[in-house]
Amino acid sequence: MAAGESSGAGIELFRGLSASQIAPFRPLGRPVRLSRGSSLFQLGDDALTLYIVRSGRIAFTMPIDVQGTPQDALVDEKGPGSVVGWSALAPPHRYTLSAHALEDSELTSFLGTELRAQIVLDPAAGIVVLLNLVELLGHRAQQTQAMWLRELQRTLDTRLG
């Protein structure tokens, strides 16, 4: 991670950790560069790695049929500071969507096994990381729920008038 990120400020997964708490996580991170359009992972792949976006933009897609032809449709996108691939921390450790770079991007990758081991090694820091993850997942669930309900409302309006 860059020096400016040592406090965890701006990185949603490490928010709230002190400099000494975040220090053991730093050597676990490895830089990754993606050129525009490059794939980060595919739906169904083993989720071995969690990423933090440092620059650029990552798109999440899921397969959808457009006029009978399978296509990848955008379902979400993330920018700097965001966590990508949290399935590396949560069983069954499989990516449930595909991700690719919308523009040239830089990320920091963490092996899920190493990250989980560090969380166990320092439970005080680990619980902060896990609570941050819970917040992220909760937000994602609420966002998905609200979007689904809006589509359901439109279906009702169309079918039932």
């Binding site: 959808i64 996108e77 979007m147 809006r150």
Partner: peptide, 17 residues
């Protein structure tokens, strides 16, 4: 169609946020 879907998702996300 995909571009329209993308605009749809982004516009919906703004409202949902």
């Amino acid at each position: 169609a995909l571009r329209r879907l993308e605009r749809h998702v982004r516009a919906e996300q703004v409202v949902v946020e």
